[in-house]
Simulated scan of single mutants.
Amino acid sequence: MRLYNLMKSRFGFLNWWPGDTEDEIFIGAILTQQTTWSNVEKAISNLKGSQALSVSTLSSMEAAEIEKLVKPSGYYRQKANRLRSLSSTIISEHGSLDGLLGLSPKALRETLLKMKGIGPETADSIMLYAAGKPSFVIDAYTKRIMHRVFGTPPGIDYGSLKAVFESSLPRKLALYKDFHAQFVELGKRYCKTKPACGGCPAAPLCQYANHGFSVSSSAAKPQNAKKRASQ
């Protein structure tokens, strides 16, 4: 927990994910794929302005209509088709988004991962922020920070790193949400592709900041990964 506490002491509690409804969070999780959040906000604003920010509405819209609204998010044809298809599936198989999100955590994750266009990161984001079920999200920021700070292998697979966090942290919804948000904030401000280590709150723990390099995957010891995540 030390890493989390260092980040939180700098950034404070981060009220992430932005979204007023489960529908907005679900739709945002699809739109944020392969783009920045600022672009997603523009698309969300368009959908909201057209009263189309709901799964039930999107399920009955033509893809061409959705394309115009989500264009700022990039890959808009793909995302429009994906939103329409996912929304239609949810309505036909679960009756509503609430019906889907009300499944047990295991059933919900399995169901989401079977849907075309939803991978592990998107599924866990939907579970954590829309459904309110503790499921730790692993994103590019998390992988990069864990590699530089603790030397976890840069190519570690999603499930393995997720298991490290979930086996070492208290299973608390607020903690999972804020820990992920702290990683995002640290990644945007300091632990960028080209790191800006000066003033980084994680520096006291960071192997990269203190030694000018990150531990290679061969040097990282898997048996210590659980301990690192809890720091």
Rank of each mutant, 00 (worst) to 15 (best):
R2W: 00
Y4E: 13
N5S: 10
W16C: 04
W17L: 06
P18D: 05
L31I: 02
T36F: 13
V40P: 03
E41I: 08
V55S: 03
S60Y: 15
E62S: 11
A63P: 04
A64M: 11
V70A: 00
G74E: 05
K79N: 01
N81Y: 08
R82H: 05
L83W: 01
R84L: 01
S88C: 07
T89C: 03
E93R: 15
E93N: 15
T111G: 08
L112N: 05
L113E: 09
M115I: 04
T122P: 07
D124F: 01
K133I: 09
V137Q: 09
I138F: 01
Y141S: 07
T142D: 01
T142Y: 00
T142P: 02
H147K: 00
G151C: 00
T152W: 10
Y158W: 11
Y158F: 09
S160C: 01
V164N: 14
E166M: 04
L173K: 10
K177Q: 15
F179Y: 15
A181D: 07
R189T: 15
K192F: 02
T193D: 13
T193E: 14
C197L: 04
A202P: 02
L205S: 00
A209G: 04
H211E: 13
H211I: 04
S216K: 12
S217Y: 14
S230P: 06
